[in-house]
């Protein structure tokens, strides 16, 4: 069995093991940005911003680490000025970054599900509190949506734009386009609307060319090895190659010979809502 398949199975197994074992830690799950949203880097957790402001333990656990200050000894700056880590009985740790400094319940060593850990700052433009789910056994982040209670979501994701890119030149595709034959990257700008109305990441993206599935990514896990950040347990893509500087998603490269090519992009969210868009390319 391929290693990536094993990894995907591991994520699924973990999800089954801890399914509904965790509660939403903030705002009943009304997050701003979901797993995979480009936030300077590929967001490996869920970012929250307002609501009642209380951050609660997602499950029973033990405080493994807490730092409430702008930097670690050695000078390393802490984004959001704080970090708190809870170790849980399953191999999953939950990590809370960016709670309000001075509000953190650092005296708690053993916590019960729902115990207040601190306050989340109310955020208009900057960063709020981000909650990560980290599989300590596999040493990878998993999408917290997988282990948190399901949410009602009736909105399908949005495909904002699709473009072909070669040698630094881009050709936007608006339903149809005409390009020279050659090798192209496919740049997709797609989002899913988060419970707070922000443009967040989708969960599943498929690229189908002339009826054949050429790429599929499932936003289930992210990890790093040897200093390189990798994404998606079934694909093992480098973050640097996947996420363009402007936050768009890169697929390919694909070689197009002269003729007509149909590209289908299917984007789904975690609740299963789906958006499908076809693009007709004339290759000269």
């Amino acid at each position: 069995m391929r290693r990536s398949t094993v990894a995907a199975l591991a994520v699924s197994t973990l999800a089954l093991f801890v399914a509904s074992g965790f509660d939403w830690p903030i705002d009943g799950g009304k997050y701003r940005f979901g797993f995979g949203t480009p936030r300077g880097v590929f967001l490996r957790g869920l970012e929250f911003g307002s609501g009642d402001g209380l951050v609660r333990a997602a499950d029973d656990g033990e405080l493994a680490f807490v730092s409430d200050g702008p930097r670690l000894p050695g000078g390393y700056p802490l984004s959001g000025n704080s970090i708190l880590v809870l170790a849980h009985a399953s191999d999953v740790s939950t990590i809370y970054v960016g709670m309000e400094s001075g509000s953190i319940s650092s005296y708690l060593k053993n916590v019960r599900r729902g115990d207040v850990l601190g306050r989340s700052p109310e955020v208009k433009a900057g960063r709020g509190t981000t909650v990560y789910a980290f599989d300590a056994k596999e040493r990878r982040y998993i999408n917290p949506m997988i282990i948190m209670p399901a949410q009602a979501d009736g909105k399908a994701p949005v495909i904002k734009s699709v473009a072909l890119s070669a040698d630094g030149l881009e050709t936007g595709i608006d339903v149809s386009a005409s390009v020279r034959q050659g090798t192209y990257d496919l740049l997709v700008d797609a989002y899913d609307t988060s419970p707070t109305g922000a443009q967040s990441a989708p969960y599943d993206i498929r690229v189908i060319i002339d009826g054949s599935e050429r790429a599929r990514v499932v936003y289930d896990a992210a990890w790093a090895s040897g200093g390189v950040s990798s994404l998606f347990s079934a694909r093992n893509l480098s973050e640097q190659s996947y996420l363009a500087m402007d936050g768009r998603i890169r697929f390919g490269p694909y070689t197009f010979a002269s003729g007509r090519v149909i590209i289908t992009i299917i984007v789904s969210d975690y609740a299963g809502n789906r958006r499908e868009q076809n693009y007709s390319i004339t290759v000269r």
């Binding site: 000894p73 050695g74 880590v85 200093g227």
Partner: peptide, 25 residues
């Protein structure tokens, strides 16, 4: 260059020829 760790850093220190990150796991 940039270097990604598997999870958040809980400790950091650097010398002239080496930087070391300690992780929350």
């Amino acid at each position: 260059w940039s270097y990604a760790f598997p999870c958040q850093l809980s400790a950091f220190s650097a010398g002239d020829t080496l930087a070391v990150g300690g992780t929350v796991d």
